[in-house]
Computed example of a mutant assay.
Amino acid sequence: MHPNDVTKSYELTEAGDRYFDGLVDKFSRSLYQAPRGELRLAMLDYLLPQMLQLKEQPVLDIGGGLGQQAAWFAKRGHAVTMTEPSDDMLNHAKQWHQDDSALPHELITYLQAPLQQLDQQAPGAWPLITCHAVLEWLGDPQAALTTLSHLLAPGGQLSLMVFNRDALRFSNVVKGNLEKALRDRLAGKGKRQRLTPISPVSHAEIEQWSAANGLQIASVAGIRVFQDYLRKPPVTPEENETLIALEKQYCRQDPHWRLGRYLLYTLIKPEAGK
């Protein structure tokens, strides 16, 4: 851990959201240069082609972070508009994309804007939207899902990934944080460099909010169903391959998907008259 990870303080926006300016290195170290980040990307690579109908349609990638998801879609022929409120994160993504010679750079457009402004800055309507690991960093995730429904075209698909509140509770119990779990004090404060989300979301909430906005849950999967609960993490490539095989085998099976650290949904906006 870097010394500044604990001591430096950050503030939420006026809307109560958490941005990641000044946290690119921490974000990259904690989420993508670690086994949990590698597994998350591997599972998305495995699940997205199963859970989405991909026809090289335009994609609105909301809260695109370091740019991995935008690159994934661009390499598959999609024109991607990547939005990100953090200037630091967006610049990092642009540079990383430029350094990738295999990436069709002309297919990616960048927009620095928060989700709440996309009704005006990227109104669509969009046939495919990705919003991965964004809602849990917002002060009002329910209102955000309403905005997403407005941006989505009739018949369109929303790939939504959220940090699972139920998994966070279970993980705290496994770690011995019994009082914290009992009192349901699970959310992070968003004040320092710790990456515990400020608004972890439950599956029940996604069901309620989706129905309220006329969105249908077409499919759901858990990401990191087992990894976060291991007493001994894999130490050899063979053990890691076995873990990935387990994750792939059970990520869409009940009850296992319900304890994924992240929940991945495909939400559909029905066409008129259907």
Rank of each mutant, 00 (worst) to 15 (best):
N172G: 11
L160M: 01
R194V: 14
L128H: 06
S199T: 12
K191M: 12
R183Y: 05
T146L: 02
S199N: 14
Y110S: 03
H150K: 15
T146F: 03
P114F: 05
S149R: 07
L145C: 04
G188Y: 12
I198S: 10
V201K: 01
P127F: 02
W126T: 06
L178D: 10
N164F: 07
A187T: 06
L128W: 13
D140F: 00
L151C: 01
N164I: 03
T130A: 11
F170K: 10
K180Y: 04
L111T: 09
E136H: 03
L152N: 05
L168Q: 13
W126A: 09
V162Q: 01
Q142E: 14
L145T: 02
L152I: 06
Q142P: 12
L148F: 11
G139H: 09
H150Q: 15
R169E: 14
D140E: 13
N172V: 03
Q117E: 15
S202D: 12
D119G: 13
Q112P: 06
F170W: 14
V134R: 00
G124K: 04
L195T: 13
G190W: 04
K180C: 11
R183W: 04
L178Q: 07
A204H: 12
L138R: 04
A181F: 05
T147Y: 00
S171E: 13
T147K: 03
E179V: 14
V162W: 00
W137V: 05
R192V: 10
F163E: 02
V201L: 06
S159K: 00
L168I: 08
E179H: 12
L115V: 08
C131H: 01
P123I: 11
G139Q: 09
V134Y: 00
A143S: 11
M161K: 00
L178C: 08
R169S: 09
A125M: 08
Q117M: 08
W137N: 02
M161L: 08
L151V: 00
V173F: 12
L151F: 04
L138D: 05
F170Y: 10
L118V: 03
D140L: 03
P200F: 04
R185H: 10
Q116R: 13
S159D: 01
A125W: 06
G139E: 06
R194E: 15
H132K: 01
A187L: 03
G155F: 11
Q142G: 04
S202C: 04
V162S: 02
L145M: 15
L111R: 13
P114N: 09
L138C: 08
L168W: 11
A122N: 06
P154S: 04
C131W: 02
K180S: 14
L128Y: 04
G188R: 12
R165Y: 03
W137A: 04
V134H: 00
G188D: 13
T147A: 13
P114R: 06
N177R: 14
Q193L: 13
A113R: 09
D119K: 12
L111G: 07
T130F: 02
A122W: 03
P141N: 06
Q142C: 12
A204Q: 14
D166K: 14
P127K: 03
L118D: 08
L160F: 08
P141S: 05
I198A: 03
L168E: 14
Y110H: 15
P197C: 02
